[in-house]
Design a protein around this nucleic acid. Sequence first.
DNA 1: GGGAAAGTTGGTCATTTGACCATATTTTCC
DNA 2: GGAAAATATGGTCAAATGACCAACTTTCCC
Lengths: 193, 193
Amino acid sequence: MIDLFITYLRNNASLTDGEIDRVVSLSTPRSLRRNELLLQEGQICRQKGFILKGLLYTAGSAAGEDGEHILQFSAEQNWILDAESYDQQIPSRFNIAAVEKTELLVWGRNDFEGLREEIPGLTKFAQQLISRNIYSSRQRILAALSGTPEEKYTSFVRNNPGLLQRLPLRMIASYLGISLKTLTRIRHAQIQR
Amino acid sequence: MIDLFITYLRNNASLTDGEIDRVVSLSTPRSLRRNELLLQEGQICRQKGFILKGLLYTAGSAAGEDGEHILQFSAEQNWILDAESYDQQIPSRFNIAAVEKTELLVWGRNDFEGLREEIPGLTKFAQQLISRNIYSSRQRILAALSGTPEEKYTSFVRNNPGLLQRLPLRMIASYLGISLKTLTRIRHAQIQR
DNA sequence: GGGAAAGTTGGTCATTTGACCATATTTTCC
DNA sequence: GGAAAATATGGTCAAATGACCAACTTTCCC
């Protein structure tokens, strides 16, 4: 299973095999059951994770709001953490939990930051990830602002192939910012065609 | 005017006066007229800016959409750039333009990256800014997903005191993802009370 | 100063959305 | 296996929203 991570690093980062070994050597496997929390609102994020298999979601609520919305889904071959809480070691405002049984590698913050000092290529790689992260956040904002619920849904399905089957519809509705009822209606209408 | 920047650095970054001088020495003043573009979609972002006075907005359109939406407003005492385009030197997907007459300091990318290598405290400071940026993006996503148009508007006014007077309503509507008509209605209803 | 453009408000109407409630179906877990 | 919970669909209705069009006001710029 850990090979998935090694392959990922080989393909995406510019690290030597020795450096990769070093990164792997400080990781700890962890597994989450369905609905199990990786990080709870109010806790401080003390570790960085990489998803080997499975699916997580990050959820939070707007200031003064009651309901939670899903901000992000993170599937295998992705890193997972609350950047704000991790970087500044302040309580997180978000929950991160497993949609389905999930296998992770995790690194304690000290270990990982040590690795970054030790391996410049890792810092550079992390930088790229942040840049992509910022970009996808912006796309997400645009998607939330633009279009009808139906357009949002079809665009979600198009951009996240395979995810539809793994998610309860209520989570998709939450992610899109529409009611479950509306989502049902949309799907019903699309089947007709 | 440049003192605004020096004061800002003194209060927010951990730099010596000498380092601050160094940063200032590589900056160039620039001024934008109302509606003038700082960065156009398709161009590569080659500089980093700091707003001394004025107000800018960043706008873009979702993939395959026709209309533009405003992603962000940036007022004085803030940095401005398209991080994705700047970091990777790829064409920007966004427009950045002035809402009103704006005074900036700008740094060419090479100059600024040179400063970052020269001054570790600057890199650390930049890192903090990114972390905050990620956080505010998430807040923005939540705000876009949660609540009625009226809640979005009142929360916008609350969180951005003073901005209301400086922005055309159609920009606020675009930022909130609602129609201008709806925004007018909300305002009308609130005056009644 | 004055003409043109930009910005704002208003009216009407068809459509969509969400709220609430009930019911059917699937999944979970003991 | 079977009860209980979670998930999905359906019906109805009132309310909110956006589209379209027109009028009015303010601002800009020559």
